[in-house]
Write a protein that binds this DNA or RNA. Structure first.
Lengths: 317, 317
DNA sequence: AATCATTTGTGACGTGAATTCAACATGGCC
DNA sequence: GGCCATGTTGAATTCACGTCACAAATGATT
């Protein structure tokens, strides 16, 4: 049952066309309706308003005073509706404010460098890049896109994979000098770790050798709210941390951080996704453009770690 | 086939309600719809615009940038529509400009005296009283009401009878002294008459004695564009004229004009009508009020003519 | 962690309001 | 007076829209 049986916008549109063209038939032609349809529609409108808008014979139309006033207003209203819808419609060119939330390491190393090019390609977009590692609520934060590393909670959010990051457990040389180097995952129980202040999707660190998989974690000596803070703590020798290779690759190559238990995590990887709200409605153009841009330009190199002859670690590939 | 299948006003209304109340379900309750209906409507709107307006989970709604802009505009547009329709709707109180067209004698003698009272009763009405005797086109003249004497052409115009006027053929004393007094209608051929510059509905003057009816007219010596001009010509002795009794009653009683052929037109009357355009649409309140007012207050006395003992004519009743 | 209550989304269906079609009035123009 | 274009009316039809029932998802609760 049609509750909103009166489509006032259509009434206004037809009425305005009738007045503009000066006749029901001409208006009907223009609107691809029949004259009879126009006649009934105008009559309905007048009956609903309870007042006559058009005095009409078969030859002439004349607006009543109410008709004239209503016409003036209707023209204005229709043009405003037109503008409102055009404005709201996804124009060809992306525009507006785009809010992106990224975890800190990836945002700093891979997103920020791309921003100038993106903004140059889309001059009408302004971008807010918010860097946090905590789990965020896209709604709450009014973010259009979030970039996250690791397994995703099942939800109606849609994820687009941007790349893969190898995870590696590292410690600073001075830490390892004090606490020793763990040889098997179980050794972690006697070590100190760096945890997170926020709940992460996976609880422990995953290790694998051959077919055997196990989880283990050192008791946290400190907790960080983001990966960059964890890296700094780790560099300072506070404890072991499991961090993304793209993040601490330079530190490893420079010897500031040393991978441990490498024999146990050859395939320890986490996917990097751009996450956005689902398909219920069309995606704003700026969001789609940004995601496409990311997917095309983000190249997370996924090198292997090799120990060089001199005992130093190198990133290969 | 519904050509105007999208009722954009309803879309806007529902959308605004959803935003105001912060949920599909609450909006549905308020709008007496089902949540499912609201959901579909919003989805339709977004699909039509090609862009998302509301990011939604089961718990939270958040407007996208487009949604916020569209909301602001929609609120404004809806209020303007409301105002336009309210303005156009026939409010309880009549208001606006009322254009009345009347023939000159009746307008001067019966309409104009009533105008102050009418305007006092309806302060928001302004009245244009146009006095012409020519046949007018209500559309062309943008008149709401016309007052006419005599038979009506069949048309879709609606007529409301205001009264009856006895018609009487008169001449000035000095004219009758020169040309004599006609005794039978056929005598008019030797007289001079006052005609009209515009075509009147009836051709000749109608006379009746007993069962016998005939038409006759003196050849016009002059033609007048309105009844008042004809009266003046007649008073000046130009010729005989057939005029409304309400118009020239005082002249007769004062002896300035003398009825002739009274034995032949005991029942020669013409109806007075207020004419307005038909029932296709509701009548504007001011028009209805005016017509009602006229019908109630116009009292066209329809006296009989009696010849007093001294030979003078008196109006009785 | 698991359940529950609430809310949004989806497919199929029926309804009814609006449009169309045909036939009729009306008016203007020759 | 007759013709053409236009506006109106009545009846049949149709297509969009909302409802219904069910599914999915979310956030709070224990």
């Amino acid at each position: 049952m049609a509750r909103f049986d009166t489509n006032r916008s259509a009434e206004m549109e037809v009425f305005v066309r009738v007045v503009d063209l000066g006749g029901f038939t001409q208006a009907a032609r223009k609107l691809r309706l029949t004259p009879s349809g126009v006649s009934k529609l105008i009559s309905r409108l007048e009956a609903r308003l309870g007042s006559r808008l058009i005095n009409r014979t078969t030859r002439k139309l004349t607006l009543t005073e109410e008709g004239q006033a209503f016409y003036d207003r209707a023209v204005r209203i229709l043009s405003e509706m037109e503008e409102a819808e055009r404005e709201a419609a996804s124009g060809a060119a992306p525009r507006g404010r785009l809010t992106v939330n990224s975890n800190i390491p990836f945002g700093m190393l891979h997103v920020m460098p791309l921003i100038p090019r993106f903004l140059a390609q889309h001059p009408d977009v302004t971008l807010d890049l918010v860097l946090t590692d905590t789990l965020i609520d896209l709604m709450q934060e009014r973010a259009d896109v979030a970039i996250r590393v690791g397994p995703l909670r099942a939800s109606r959010l849609v994820a687009r994979k941007l790349g893969t990051s190898r995870m590696v457990v590292v410690g600073a040389p001075n830490y390892l000098a004090r606490f020793g180097t763990p040889k098997i995952p179980a050794d972690l129980a006697d070590h100190r770790g760096i945890g997170w202040t926020f709940p992460r999707s996976i609880r422990g660190w995953s290790f694998r050798r051959g077919d055997h998989t196990e989880e283990a974690m050192p008791p946290p000596a400190a907790r960080a709210s983001d990966g960059e803070a964890a890296r700094r703590l780790c560099l300072g020798g506070v404890g072991l941390a499991r961090l993304a290779l793209f993040h601490i690759g330079p530190d490893i190559e420079a010897g500031r951080l040393v991978p441990v238990l490498q024999g146990y995590n050859p395939g320890d990887r986490e996917d990097i996704h751009a996450v956005y709200v689902g398909h219920t409605a069309p995606l704003p153009a700026r969001v789609r453009a940004f995601i496409d841009f990311l997917a095309e330009h983000v190249k997370v190199s996924d090198p292997a770690l090799k120990r060089a002859g001199d005992g130093r670690w190198k990133l290969v590939g």
